[in-house]
């Protein structure tokens, strides 16, 4: 079992004719993902990697029965494409691009929540279910099937954790990138809830970083609702105050958003705080995870 992606997931790729969209469609297909179509307005009727391209999401849904979408759309056009996708009835959207204006994300989030759409990102590597399929850009070679869930604010660090676990023969049920912007389309606690309910997941790892209060707020949910073991790593203890560390959301402002504050909140909720990524292997061993 897994969360978000299963055998019924039929994916369209928005921005499929772009440089990144077409390369990533190739990798997603090679991993066994059911990519049933692509959308680029004005490029309908062509194909990319053997996948039919449509002019609109509505048409793509009608012709292919798609129920999920992954975005490789230039940042300036994401809001428009996102609203179109929700109107067309898609219920799962992964927004990979970075540099989307925060006030656009505010509108996207509000509309998605109102329509009951589960959306991830922006600035997310996407979702990967080992051996089954993926929506996004995660490099397949680092993942192995198993029963540990990973939620990460950072793309590359989700690969790092999956890689360390896979090397120690511990697999993953689903790996979810929640996005690295100051506002994300779904909060950490919402994703934790899916893992708590998933029969295929025995434990969850949170890979956080400085900035914002996602980890602090999730700690409240964990102490109230989570029965599965949770471990967390927070990157960025040497981040200077007031400097944006690559991600739009990774910034320590005054005394808020620090590694220390996040550690305290998570520890108080019974989460095992990992001082460094490599300790995830020992944690998995201690809980006999596989």
């Amino acid at each position: 079992m897994s969360i978000l992606i299963d055998d019924t997931t039929r994916v369209i790729v928005q921005g499929i004719t772009g440089r990144i969209g077409s390369v990533q469609t190739h990798w997603m297909l090679q991993y066994g993902t059911k990519v049933v179509g692509g959308v680029t307005p004005g490029k309908g009727g062509t194909t990319v990697e053997g996948v039919p391209v449509f002019d609109s999401v509505e048409e793509a849904v009608r012709e292919t029965g798609a129920n999920a979408s992954v975005f490789f759309v230039p940042a300036a056009f994401v809001l428009d494409a996102f609203l179109e996708t929700i109107e067309a009835g898609i219920k799962l959207i992964v927004v990979v691009p970075e540099h989307i204006p925060v006030r656009d994300v505010v509108k996207m989030r509000s509309f998605a929540l109102e329509r009951g759409v589960f959306a991830l990102g922006p600035t997310t590597p996407g979702i990967l279910v080992p051996g089954k399929g993926k929506m996004g850009i995660m490099p397949a070679s680092l993942f192995a099937p198993g029963r540990v869930g990973i939620i990460s604010r950072s793309g590359t660090l989700s690969y790092e954790f999956a890689g360390i676990l896979s090397e120690s023969k511990v697999g993953q049920s689903t790996v979810v990138g929640m996005g690295a912007d100051p506002v994300v389309l779904r909060n950490l606690a919402d994703i934790l809830e899916l893992f708590q309910e998933d029969e295929g997941t025995d434990a969850v790892i949170i890979v956080g970083e400085v900035g914002g209060e996602q980890e602090e707020k999730a700690a409240g949910f964990i102490s109230r609702k989570m029965t599965k073991p949770v471990a967390a790593y927070i990157a960025g203890r040497y981040s200077p105050q007031g400097k944006r560390m690559g991600h739009a959301g990774a910034i320590v402002r005054g005394s808020s958003g620090t590694v220390q504050g996040k550690h305290e909140a998570l520890r108080a909720a019974g989460v095992e705080v990992l001082e460094s990524p490599i300790y995830v292997a020992q944690w998995a061993k201690k809980h006999k995870l596989k």
Partner: peptide, 24 residues
């Protein structure tokens, strides 16, 4: 090649040495 990876690399370098910079 990533912000999270860069911050984690700084964390780990900082255990025994000192990072000169963050670059993502």
């Amino acid at each position: 090649s990533g912000a999270g990876l860069g911050m984690a690399s700084m964390d780990i370098i900082g255990q025994k040495m000192r990072p000169a910079n963050f670059l993502e």
